[in-house]
Amino acid sequence: MNWPLKKKNNGDGNSNGHIIEMLGITKVYDTGKIQVEALKGIDLVVDKGEFVAVVGPSGSGKSTLLNLVGCLDTPSGGTYMLGGEAVAGLDRDQLADVRNRRVGFVFQNFNLLPQLTALENVEMPMLFGGMGRRERRRRAKEHLDRVGLGDRVEHRPTELSGGQMQRVAIARALAMEPDIVLADEPTGNLDTGSGSDVMSLMTELWGQGRTLVVVTHDKTLASRAGRVVEIRDGVVVTDERAVA
């Protein structure tokens, strides 16, 4: 049996410990008439336990890059290894499995399923991962506890504030214990207060040894990251690690 939770490689199983290894990645959007070259050759290596902030002006290709990292989309050129595994040539369902097991997504507009409760939203990736009902419930509760929403499990997204919704989304992203958490402007839709809550949560996750890649316009959030990658016009222009 091919038990989907059985991880061949937990990100640290490969020799070099790289979770993301991108080489000469390009992405061209073909919109019929015009071709938009969103990424023009990205080299990016992220190790386990890193907190990477991706910054850059609007339209520079940050979201595009994040989608490729998360296997939501496939690159037009270059090679990409996620957790030591080449993702090129995987079919749609295999890519879905990779996303399910290795990647946790956090979106700017939360993207919770509106008709489900907070608990059910967090359960969803585990349902796709083939986990039993009881185990799902238990873990979902645990994750909600950890983001401080243990008393909101039966609430639906419409009954939650923006900050609470984003915390549910983070719990959902962590549900399958992914190799990497990807967040695209996680504080972009939040007021300063909830924004800084989410930021603290991110920093906390990093402290627990998780790997994060966060796209942000937010200087404060970027300053909390251990590494800042700046993109302009589809290429990496600076890549700085904060000295500890």
Partner: peptide, 16 residues
């Protein structure tokens, strides 16, 4: 459509 996209993003197979 968006909900379907979300489900796909968190790992739903096509048949699901």
């Amino acid at each position: 459509t968006r909900e379907i996209g979300v489900q796909m993003a968190i790992g739903a197979h096509r048949s699901w």
